[in-house]
């Protein structure tokens, strides 16, 4: 290696590492700040305390928002998993005309910017009287989760050997038996991974929620409106808890998919 190429290697390392630091900085900085004793957002914190966590957990508005978020994420991701898995199975095995059109339609909520979905649901829900209702919120979040479920479950079903289903059929299993006794049990790990994925997405969703939730508060909605008013260190505690929550979910997802090794699927 000559001097010039060594120099370019050094440059690449400096630039690459800086970009990575820039990417990770927000995640790294929030957690220490949440244990600060100071009222202002000083870094490094002058001394440590749990006051912002006490503040947070002692506030019924945040507790209520947390309950709503959990309920909303549970209902919407469960609904999306059930409907999405059945649909994914049909899309992969069904072989009927118009299949690609249906698939594109199911993927659309992922491609359409969420602000457009938010405005569309606002106007539509206002017309049919679902605006501000919890039902409307669950329906909206379910729609946002559908593309990811269909995507993940289609991949899982596609890699499930169709000959196993054919053997079951040869042995006299009905279509219903094949589905409930052969296919679905084998899809359980992927379904669990998809459920975690959509749960986290719903738990973090802001834009559609802001438009259609009315007076119902969720954690990200509450956080967003507090941010717009003033910078309050309690938010730092919320943010830290959200990071921890997302990382635990990521770990759960890794456990479910660990056989292939971590980023191995990317190579």
């Amino acid at each position: 290696m000559n001097a010039r190429s060594r120099l370019s290697t050094v440059w690449l390392t400096v630039v690459g590492a800086s970009v990575l630091l820039f990417l990770c900085l927000p995640v790294l900085i929030v957690a220490p700040m949440s244990f600060s004793s100071a009222q202002s957002l000083e870094f490094p914190p002058p001394s440590l305390s749990l006051r912002w966590y006490e503040n947070l957990l002692g506030n019924p508005i945040w507790i209520d928002a947390g309950k709503n978020s959990l309920m909303l994420a549970t209902l919407s991701s469960s609904a999306a998993i059930v409907l999405g898995t059945l649909a994914a199975y049909v899309l992969v095995r069904g072989n009927f005309p118009g299949r690609h059109l249906l698939e594109a339609n199911f993927m659309a909520p992922m491609i359409v910017p969420s602000i457009i979905t938010a405005v569309a649901l606002y106007i539509f829900f206002a017309r049919i009287g679902l605006l501000g209702s919890f039902t409307g919120l669950v329906l909206g979040h379910t729609i946002l989760a559908v593309p990811y479920v269909v995507l993940i479950m289609q991949a899982a079903i596609r890699s499930f050997d169709i000959r196993i289903e054919q053997v079951a059929a040869t042995l006299g299993a009905s279509q219903r038996q094949i589905l409930t006794m052969v296919v679905l049990p084998n899809l359980a790990p992927s379904a669990a991974a998809a459920w975690i994925f959509t749960f986290v997405m719903s738990f973090d969703e802001v834009v559609v929620t802001l438009f259609i939730s009315g007076t119902t508060t969720t954690i990200p909605k509450r956080m967003f409106s507090e941010l717009m008013l003033q910078v309050n260190p309690t938010i730092t505690a919320v943010a830290t808890l959200l990071i921890a929550f997302n990382l635990v979910a990521l770990a759960g997802l890794l456990l479910l998919t660990r056989r292939r090794g971590f980023p191995g699927g990317m190579g």
């Binding site: 700040m33 957002l41 973090d204 910078v231 943010a239 959200l242 990071i243 990382l247």
Partner: peptide, 15 residues
């Protein structure tokens, strides 16, 4: 970082 919510990452920049 991809997994941490956009809101949290955006907020962190204020800090």
């Amino acid at each position: 970082t991809f997994w941490v919510s956009i809101l949290v990452r955006t907020y962190a920049w204020i800090v």
